[in-house]
Design a protein around this nucleic acid. Structure first.
Lengths: 278, 278
DNA sequence: GTGATTTTGGAATTTTTATTCTAATTTACT
DNA sequence: AGTAAATTAGAATAAAAATTCCAAAATCAC
């Protein structure tokens, strides 16, 4: 009538739930497997049965039985679960969009649904991958700057202009290098200043050049870019990578903007704290 | 005599450095591998050559060559590097969020967590509450316009400038009314044009006035605003309301931006369909 | 254009890894 | 203690994955 098994868990959370629930009735060797997995869940995604078995101090066959006992068809099946949980969410919207178009369902509302999901996933990926220590560094540099220079063209410009708005609102001196009149504002870059340089593939050369000039002049740089191979990543700078998801030929900006908001507000808080703390 | 290769990178950072340095000289297929790995480093740790090759759109043998070109003995060798580095950033979104929040009040990490949540929720609300019929109307008006006028100041400006970028990319005539030189561009507003007016509390008067002028001149208006009590809601316009969530004194922009993306892409699709359908 | 050189895709091969099977051992029960 | 049932370990097998190799195609140099 009763008994466990049946279907395998579909999420890692359900997997743990299962372990908690009927993990106690397990025989010794399977128990060891359960304990090991519970203690080192991150290993499961990147190890072989042999390695896990060894680490749990059981023979490989015992580990296999453990997987099957939990309802999986085998180790590979169980591993798949952990691998999916581990990797970021990058659905392929390009094919989804063409599918929409081909079926004639590419209504504005359907497009919005796709962009909405992409934006949410982008932000989620950002939260998962961001390095808190780097964020602190970035904020420290910006908070000490006399003037903050904001550089970002084309797709990055909305982010730069948001930062300009945000800093202005908090009374923090910031200059948006918008290229109006094709004026070069290089000479404004002075030691003691800082720059937020924002650029995404295909990397507008103006942005890269201005950032390089800033580097030469000893201006502290926070680089906000998409890939480790970006030209901005070459600079001696605090490098913040923003994982944005493509939707067909377009790309979400939500993650970059979310990061920009957090950074600017953190800089404001840092400055205020510093002033009061004196 | 020759060079490059030699030893394989010993850290992921060194690996990226290598890609930045001589990634440009790589032949096409190997380039694809490099690009894919740079964009999805987390996949490398948990995928097979076959899977990665497929995702990078190259045959498996090309991926092998890529690994060897970088100095690794093979794929397994390269994978080892990524596995070592990535076991740490394992937790899922919910866990990660809690961890970020726990890093202390007003720390950059905690702020990011707040903005991330606000952004995600804003987007979700948007997708849930948007009126599909209104969206269709908005897209229809914009798709028929000769020129699209984009108006948005202060907090709304990033949205307007993103739209300008997006329309330009699709070859759709659009003018960003940015107020440079304090020039009034009223006289550009002509019957047959359309306007996207964007404004959030406290509603910059410039935006409202320009939108009113557009109304007088018989220009079709799509109003993107926050509340039904907004001055823009008084206009004879297609009114799209964007529900943004506050984070302290700040407010997410993710929903507005997501809506802007969807609308601009839908307009592009509508125009293309119309042209071909003729 | 012609030949030399590089790059490519796919099939063949080797290695690694997962999985099954069975005899031996342990445990539970009377 | 004796028997039945459950559990185990390790060897055998099957499956999947990595890696190599080579002929065809593309690119380059002249």
């Amino acid at each position: 009538m009763d008994h466990d098994d049946a279907g395998a868990p579909h999420t890692v959370e359900a997997f743990y739930e299962r372990l908690r629930h009927d993990g106690h009735g397990l025989p010794k060797r399977l128990r060891q497997c359960a304990d090991y997995v519970a203690a080192h869940p991150d290993k499961v995604a990147v190890s072989t049965v042999a390695e896990l078995a060894e680490a749990a101090d059981v023979p490989p066959s015992a580990f296999m039985r453990f997987c099957q006992e939990l309802g999986f068809s085998g180790f590979s099946h169980m591993q798949k679960l952990f691998r999916e949980e581990y990797t970021q969410k990058w659905p392929n919207y390009a094919t989804r969009l063409t599918k929409l178009r081909d079926s004639g369902n590419d209504t504005p509302a359907a497009l919005l649904a796709e962009f909405a999901e992409a934006g949410r996933n982008s932000i989620e990926n950002l939260a998962r991958t961001v390095d808190a220590a780097l964020l602190d560094e970035a904020v420290a540099i910006l908070a000490q700057a006399r003037t903050i220079h904001l550089v970002g063209n084309r797709r990055a410009f909305p982010v730069a202009s948001y930062l300009a708005y945000s800093f202005e609102k908090m009374g923090i001196p910031a200059i948006l290098h918008s290229g109006v009149g094709n004026l070069k504002l290089d000479h404004l870059l002075a030691r003691g200043d800082a720059m937020i340089a924002i650029s995404f593939a295909p990397y507008a050369s103006d942005t890269v050049e201005l950032a390089e000039e800033a580097e030469r002049r000893g201006v502290g740089i926070v680089a906000l870019t998409d890939l480790p191979t970006s030209p901005l990543a070459r600079l001696d700078a605090v490098r913040l990578f923003v994982p944005e998801i493509d939707v067909g030929a377009f790309r979400s900006l939500s993650a970059a903007l979310t990061l920009a908001m957090a950074v600017s507000v953190a800089v404001g808080a840092h400055r205020r704290r510093h002033k009061n703390g004196k």
